[in-house]
């Protein structure tokens, strides 16, 4: 009898927790806040070239929707935003070789906001791009 009770209460709490989790969005509050702040900065600094949906433009400016590129180069992203980029890269199966200017006036937290927005909205990530990651990425340049 006691065993039965245990099983029932266990399955009820399992059900409850599944319900609660599925009601939550799949990103944390912090990530959502970073992304909201990032969107404003993205519109100011990035949208002209990369587009409102991160679609890029022809082979002039690469799209920001290539999740594989974003994941493989995650550690470099902050440095690209701040210091720009030279030379050819391949994104979404196309080659891009226009230089990208850096935006030196951005602070670490602002870069974290922008990259959280980009990687969770255009890419398929669900994690915050943290200030620590930004710091780590910028190390090579300081």
């Amino acid at each position: 009898m006691k065993k039965h009770f245990l099983i029932i209460s266990f399955s009820i709490s399992m059900l409850l927790s599944i319900l609660i989790v599925s009601c939550q969005p799949n990103v944390s509050i912090e990530t959502a806040q970073y992304a909201v702040n990032g969107q404003k900065l993205y519109i100011t600094h990035c949208q002209n070239c990369h587009g409102a949906k991160g679609e890029g433009l022809g082979t002039l400016y690469p799209p920001l929707t290539d999740s594989t590129y974003l994941r493989q180069n995650r550690h470099q992203l902050a440095s690209i935003v701040k210091f720009g980029m030279q030379g050819a890269i391949e994104v979404a199966g196309k080659t891009f070789d226009n230089a990208m200017p850096g935006i030196k006036e951005l602070s670490n937290i602002e870069i974290a906001y922008i990259l959280t927005y980009v990687t969770t909205t255009f890419g398929k990530d669900t994690k915050t791009y943290t200030q620590e990651e930004v710091q780590e990425s910028l190390k090579g340049h300081q």
């Binding site: 949208q47 002209n48 070239c49 433009l57 022809g58 002039l60 400016y61 200017p101």
Partner: peptide, 13 residues
């Protein structure tokens, strides 16, 4: 042009 041109040419395209 880093400012308005990309948006302008995207729209004209």
């Amino acid at each position: 042009c880093p400012s308005i041109c990309p948006t302008m040419q995207r729209n004209l395209l």
